[in-house]
Design a protein around this nucleic acid. Sequence first.
DNA 1: ATTAAATGTCGTAAGTTTGCGACATAGATA
DNA 2: TATCTATGTCGCAAACTTACGACATTTAAT
Lengths: 116, 116
Amino acid sequence: MTYAKTAAFTQEQQQLARVAKALAHPARVAIIQFLASKQTCISGDIAAELPLARTTVFQHLQELKAVDLIRGEIDGLTVCYCLNTELLQQVHQQFTGFFLEATAGAVCGPEDACSC
Amino acid sequence: MTYAKTAAFTQEQQQLARVAKALAHPARVAIIQFLASKQTCISGDIAAELPLARTTVFQHLQELKAVDLIRGEIDGLTVCYCLNTELLQQVHQQFTGFFLEATAGAVCGPEDACSC
DNA sequence: ATTAAATGTCGTAAGTTTGCGACATAGATA
DNA sequence: TATCTATGTCGCAAACTTACGACATTTAAT
């Protein structure tokens, strides 16, 4: 039942939410940063870089793959994980659009009570 | 147990994940867009704009308030909801930094297999 | 003082996420 | 061929999320 009403929102809202959800865990943020820090694809032990069990990291990797933010190619014994930089750029634009729209009004300051 | 290991990540990663999580549902994206579209604070029936029950919308509003993306001031019988544009701007910068970092490497194209 | 309207609080059902250990599988190498 | 290493798959327990109805609270009007 949990996501029962998702279909009632626009594609744009759903897509933004979907990506946001993929980034909604520090481990997944860390994984992307780690892949970015190596300037290349990674074969292997990402789990060793994180304070989590191997299977848990694998699970996070699956989630990132599910939204296509990263790719994974099997290469013999190891797997090669890559960032999908093209999608990341696209998503960046989408978020920028969202934030610009949201900040355009400049309604309330940070401390002041609002004066409705 | 679910968020047991969160503390093991950096503040930056946690903050980004926290905001991403707040945006990780289309209803919450829609709420922010709705508040932005009115160029002012809103007293009242946000639920009427969304395909969800009043209490459910209220719950989403609470979550957005919890990360301080929106503010709510009680004003007599109604409540005045505002975007925290200052925070939104800050978060926008944070996301931009993250995405720039992530796309800097430009490792793999969208279709090509990676060449590890 | 009653009552109507607008919000907030609680509880609950169903589904999802997180984190992990145990087991399965597939190349590589002796 | 046995076996080591690197990954993938399953299943489980605990916690979290989503969605909603029923009830409480608060303010404004009559």
